[in-house]
């Protein structure tokens, strides 16, 4: 176990539009609360990615930011980190750019960083905006994964990548699953931020760095999760009621 766990927040000024920088804060605090030293490093867009970090976190961002971020990630630091089994956690645009290809705002295909066997094009129809709920599809996480999605991309996984969750409500990747797991690279469309809404997922990532973790009092997180799940159930019930309303009788 390293002395102080270093969490690199990758280009927060480019990939941090939806509060996803919070994922790094959550990881660091959950270590500190257990007496493990932790520090977060905000990597500025002009700086090289540090080789010596233990965890790398990427967030969502806008189209122009995505292509810029890919060009800055071409130095291979992130690929070496993934090869070394260090957790790389990527959300939304961060997820898309770690794949093989993605589309920019004008619809042009760009090569991604290539750490995840996936390709992103456009969802048919409108953007996926709303609560996203998934059943985890990985060993070690049993709690439902909850968050908010806001994206127009559809991401199809290749054989080397496995989904992070099966979608119960919402869109996710667009084919019934959300996110990807490939080696130590974990990706999702969940904002919220994902690790604040899903402490079990945060601890699962941390356990890859520091081993088994003592439980924490997560009653505030659990209260938030219960409230969100209840809100989702209510919204779905309202939706079904609208579908069942008898059609207006025409003349």
């Amino acid at each position: 176990m390293p002395d102080a766990v270093r969490i690199a927040l990758v280009f927060p000024s480019l990939l941090g539009t939806y509060g996803d920088g919070g994922n790094a804060s959550v990881l660091a605090q959950r270590l500190r609360w257990r007496g493990v030293e932790a520090e977060t490093v905000d990597v500025a867009v002009d700086d090289a990615l540090p080789e010596q970090a233990d965890v790398y976190v990427l967030g969502g961002g806008e189209d122009t930011a995505q292509t810029l971020a890919v060009s800055r990630l071409a130095d291979g630091v992130l690929a070496r980190a993934a090869d070394a089994g260090k957790p790389v956690f990527a959300v939304c645009a961060g997820f898309q750019i770690l794949g093989e290809t993605f589309l920019d705002g004008a619809g042009a295909v760009h090569a991604g960083v290539g750490l995840i066997d996936c390709r992103t094009d456009r969802l048919p129809g409108s953007r996926a905006v709303g609560e996203l709920l998934g059943e985890p599809a990985v060993d070690g996480v049993v709690e439902l994964l909850t968050g908010y999605e806001n994206h127009g991309g559809r991401t199809l996984l290749g054989p080397a990548a496995k989904p992070l969750a099966r979608v119960r409500s919402g869109t996710g990747n667009g084919d019934g699953v959300d996110g990807a797991v490939q080696g130590s690279v974990v990706a999702t469309y969940l904002h919220g931020p994902a690790l604040a809404r899903n402490p079990a997922l945060a601890d699962w990532l941390l356990s890859k760095v520091v081993g088994d973790l003592a439980p924490l009092d997560d009653s505030e997180e659990q209260e938030l999760r219960r409230e969100r799940l209840t809100a989702l159930r209510r919204a779905r019930a309202a939706w079904w009621r609208r579908q069942w309303r008898p059609p207006a009788r025409g003349t």
Partner: peptide, 9 residues
């Protein structure tokens, strides 16, 4: 805005 994720910004 329906998504309060910005609280973390």
């Amino acid at each position: 805005g329906r998504d309060p994720s910005w609280l973390w910004d």
